[in-house]
Design a binder for these strands. Structure first.
Lengths: 157, 157
DNA sequence: CTCGGTGCAAAGCTTTTGCATCCGC
DNA sequence: GCGGATGCAAAAGCTTTGCACCGAG
């Protein structure tokens, strides 16, 4: 298994290539945000990321966070989710197994799962409707059994 | 095929049962909003619905629209989507074939499709993770081929 | 040196809330 | 008549924008 450091190094390279290819500047803020995101496990929203960097006395603005997230989305190093709530949730996406989400509508717990059959659906639908499909988002909604669901779990476990 | 009038009659009954079961009041505003939604084809957002009712000189407030949409979501007469954008999109869901969405990331066209295999995935994942799964949302992202994609299509066709 | 990027604060938009009024039950 | 529901407007949240300054190329 890759170490966190090795992963970050690779991710940084990918980001650099992307910035080069678009003639965008390689600013320290952009790399700091990337590093912060890859040190994070699970989902986060902009406010969490921003707050976390502020706590470390890193001088960034929300505007830059949003700007950088857009860049990272464009080069597929980050994924954006709009689950039920009004805040967008983000997640690093390099070296993470492609997965989908299962949400408990009672306690809002978020679980992840993989099912290779989704790829087949993607392929079929793309062929029939004449689309090149790049990615997908599947969210299942239900309730977890066995009662402990009454308790509030961390949302982004 | 069911007529629009027959469908609305049935939907109204369902809504009435729901309101009764929860001891909620059967106000004219609630039925007016329900009727407006079932007269709509395709997706809509709150502003469109609200604007449409205002145009007809129907006296409703945004607050009531949001409140009623929550009720309709709770009794599964309406579905809510959070595609890419920051506005929530809604859609009537009774007497509509269960379907999922395919979005062109270039022109933002939204297509609908059905694939029964999703039910199998839902069942498997529910079993493995011990969840009762009620519903799902699958969105595929890609680009439509053959160029006409350059043009802007209506988003909620 | 240039001009893209940043920080900050203000503005924009969607959604929620507080409160007086209204009306379904 | 009581208490839930409504309309209105103000507030709250998330995200975007304007502008002066900074610093990567």
């Amino acid at each position: 298994m890759k170490s966190k450091v090795a992963t970050y190094k690779k991710v940084k390279q990918l980001f650099t290539s992307y910035l080069d290819s678009k003639s965008l500047r390689k600013t320290p803020e952009r790399y700091a945000i990337l590093e912060e995101i890859y040190a994070w496990s699970g989902h986060f929203d902009v406010e969490e990321l921003y707050g976390n960097m502020k706590d470390k006395n890193y001088r960034v603005s929300r505007a830059t966070v949003y700007n950088t997230l857009d860049l990272l989305l464009a080069c597929d190093l980050v994924t954006k989710h709009r689950f039920g709530k009004n805040v967008a949730q983000y997640e690093k996406s390099f070296a993470c197994k492609q997965h989908d989400h299962l949400i408990c509508t009672n306690c809002h717990k978020v679980l992840e799962f993989c099912d290779p059959r989704i790829q087949n659906i993607q392929k079929t639908v793309g062929n029939i409707l004449n689309f090149n499909i790049f990615h997908h988002s599947l969210v299942l909604y239900g309730s977890c059994n066995k009662g402990n669901c009454e308790n509030r779990f961390l949302e982004n476990q």
